[in-house]
C-alpha cells in the first residue's frame, strides 16, 4: 500500500460522491453522496500525513475537524429534510418545484 493507492481510493470516492450528488433524486441519497466526498478528503489527509509529513499530526487533526463539522452540517440538513417532508410529504428533489423562473 503506497501513497498512490490511498490517493486513488480518495479520488474514486470523491468522484462517486460527485456523481451521486448530481444524479440522485432522493435528498437522503444526495446527503450520503456528499458525505462520501467529505470522507474522500479525510482519506487524503490521513494518507498525506502518514506518508509525506509524518513529523506531525496536522493531517489527522484536520480530518477530525472535518468529521465534526460535517456531522454538524448533516444535523441541520436532516432537520431541513424533516421540515420539508412535513409540508410536502416527499423527499424527492423533483417534487420541490415551487421556486423557478
Amino acid at each position: 500500500m503506497t501513497l498512490t493507492h490511498h490517493l486513488l481510493l480518495g479520488a474514486a470516492l470523491f468522484l462517486i460522491g460527485v456523481f451521486g450528488a448530481l444524479t440522485r433524486r432522493n435528498i437522503i441519497g444526495i446527503l450520503m453522496s456528499i458525505e462520501l466526498m467529505f470522507n474522500a478528503a479525510n482519506i487524503n489527509l490521513a494518507a498525506f500525513n502518514h506518508f509525506l509529513h509524518p513529523e506531525g499530526v496536522l493531517g489527522m487533526t484536520t480530518a477530525l475537524f472535518i468529521i465534526t463539522v460535517a456531522a454538524a452540517e448533516v444535523v441541520v440538513g436532516l432537520a431541513l429534510v424533516l421540515a420539508i417532508y412535513r409540508n410536502c410529504e416527499s423527499v424527492y428533489a423533483e417534487d420541490f418545484n415551487l421556486l423557478k423562473g
Binding site: 456528499i34 509525506l52 484536520t62 431541513l80
Partner: peptide, 27 residues
C-alpha cells in the same frame, strides 16, 4: 423550506469540494 433545502444541498456540496482542495493543499 424549499429554498433552505436547495441552499443546504449546494452549500454542503461546495464545502465538500473545498475540503478536498484543502486535503490536496496539505499534501
Amino acid at each position: 423550506n424549499e429554498g433552505a433545502i436547495k441552499y443546504f444541498l449546494f452549500g454542503a456540496f461546495s464545502s465538500a469540494i473545498f475540503v478536498y482542495g484543502l486535503s490536496l493543499y496539505y499534501g
